[in-house]
Nucleic acid binder design. Structure first.
Lengths: 352, 352
DNA sequence: TTGAAAGCGGTACCAG
DNA sequence: CTGGTACCGCTTTCAA
């Protein structure tokens, strides 16, 4: 006779509200969508009261189905090694929400993960996808095979020849050029580079920028002024590389590390060898992690404008989703040099 | 006569597949849900082929509506000041996905943001909510007013008297006790503390642990051995506080900072005053940010097991969502001390 | 083995 | 001003 009480109450639906308020679902729907101009004060109040009493919340699932819009943006974070990319969520989410979009998050640790994540987001009918990528060299084929019904995408830091996608790149080459300009201006002539892992495009680009910068200032590129500085590997390797550079004679007066983590390892190695930064040797990183200001001395570094990239990704997507702009956009963000304490002029008498 | 071509093709629906394959939607649905045992090889193949050709993907929105399940977990990240909590997403998301749940992400910068985020997630019909909280003292009223139809929640690091919620706490008091045990064991007698912002429960708890630890070892709590170390404020303040401690006579032989960021500021101040860490003075932090290993010396610190907390939150929620467990669980995670280079015995002859 | 039809929770059109 | 109703894309009886 008596039905067993549900453990958790069933969600109230629009029908419940209509019934309890003694009106039709249409009228309730009108209230929900703020079409209340031509409505009796009394009816409106009664409906609102019923909504409150039933603790009714419209189902956005049902709404999505009928409106054919989920108001959701998918974000795939591939670069999980550096917290930097996750930090971008701190800008992306509020920005998206202020435009009434939600964020559906996926992480991708591998290429397969990535495909799976994209499929998932498509099934969930996200209206746009932001892809925060590693610069690993990968196969883009599956991106090209996406159906034409796929939502707009914004790729951050991913090389692809397809201008069908919005793309936001970081100017690694330009950044290294600027660093070398800065160092040469200070008087440095022997500038070393701890280069990143070969699997990453960014490593190549920075190395290229390094060589271009030297050339620009008529400095010789010397094989022995470069050594591996892989931030994915244990720090031991970077320390070894740094020692190798320190043992050169004459010693380099500046070291540009592949990234801040390697720069920190280099700093530690240099300090333990009894040398002072920047008096004896300058150290410069790349990334501008928050911890750069915690180091002693604070680290001069190239900032990767990830926050800015995230912002632009959201804006580009929203412009496309709202139909404000039809075509995709490719842009490259410049990476400013943030000068702190770890850089300065070379020691006097350091000329060969 | 000819309809204008849509810019982006309409998504294929189950009807399209049924029509093109010459079967009914039911049959297609059966294929989608792997009820293919009693099906003609031929039919199955034809349907699969049609799905491939049309690039059909079932709409999870429609599925959610009829199944009354979104397979989505909401995550609210309130502690945006420390990247630590965002990092938890790196465990939460894969874990959730492997159980076939997606992550809908919200950030909350304020109490209002928080409410808004919760409402949003409820409308989106998430099946569980993970709340990565700041330890700020806040008003929980709105949580208590959630309808009984609200999904299970897991609060990480949020004080509330409601055992209606799953709760995962961090044992700040125990952590400080362990630090003091460790320091006393090393021979320290004058142990200072840079305490965190008054707005945070964790600050109070750590201060309490500090006092309890001193008491336990019959050490006097001295007002002047404590000074503010607010990681939300500019580092200048923490540096001032550190200098104040260094100028005491006799000088403390160890400083426990409110967190790693303050510890870094303290280390820098100490080193610039010409003292050596840990030979002259020990420094210990709290949080175990990745950057602890980049400092020189590497920082001894108390680890906040955020990753573990995230894991447990997911597991607790899933157990409840699947009906495996009905009641909520409260637990406190212990915070292990990670000993690195910044701590050691006090300088000899440091006894009063 | 396959198909027809009801219904999930809303929206929107058209009547009255 | 309000109500009836078709429909969004899919699942799930129930029949054939």
């Amino acid at each position: 006779m008596s039905k067993v009480q549900q453990k958790t109450a069933r969600r109230a639906t629009i029908k419940d509200v209509a019934r309890d308020a003694g009106v039709s679902v249409t009228t309730v729907s009108n209230v929900l969508n703020e079409r209340t101009e031509a409505m009796t004060e009394e009816t409106l109040r009664r409906i609102q009261e019923t909504i409150r009493v039933l603790n009714y919340r419209p189902s956005s699932v049902a709404r999505s189905l009928v409106n054919n819009s989920t108001a959701t943006i998918g974000v795939i974070v591939a670069e999980i090694h550096t917290p930097l990319f996750l930090q971008a969520l701190n800008t992306i989410e509020p920005l998206a929400r202020s435009a009434n979009y939600n964020i559906l998050l996926s992480t991708a640790r591998s290429h397969d993960d990535e495909r799976q994540a994209v499929n998932l987001l498509l099934e969930k009918q996200v209206e746009g996808i932001i892809f925060l990528c590693t610069s690993a060299y990968v196969d883009d084929d599956y991106l090209l095979q996406l159906p034409s019904s796929a939502p707009p995408m914004a790729l951050v830091n991913r090389a692809t020849t397809q201008d069908r996608f919005n793309q936001i790149h970081l100017d690694n080459v330009g950044a290294m050029l600027a660093v070398i300009d800065y160092l040469v201006e200070l008087g440095h002539r022997r500038i070393a580079h701890l280069y990143g892992p070969a699997s990453r495009r960014s490593s190549d680009e920075r190395l290229r920028g390094y060589r271009l910068g030297l050339k620009k200032h008529n400095l010789l590129y010397r094989e022995n002024h470069t050594a591996p500085g892989d931030y994915l590997a244990p720090p031991k390797a970077s320390e070894q590389s740094t020692l190798k550079l320190l043992n050169l004679s004459p010693r380099p007066t500046a070291i540009i590390a592949a990234d801040d983590i390697v720069a920190a390892a280099a700093m530690r190695t240099i300090q333990r060898a009894g040398l002072k930064i920047p008096q004896d040797i300058t150290v410069i990183g790349v990334d501008d992690h928050p911890f750069c200001t915690y180091l002693n001395p604070t680290l001069t570094t190239v900032q990767l404008p990830i926050t800015q990239a995230g912002e632009q990704a959201v804006e580009l997507l929203i412009a496309q989703m709202t139909g404000e702009r039809a075509t995709s956009v490719q842009k490259t963000l410049s990476c400013p040099l943030i000068v702190r304490e770890s850089s300065g002029p070379p020691p006097s008498g350091s000329e060969e």
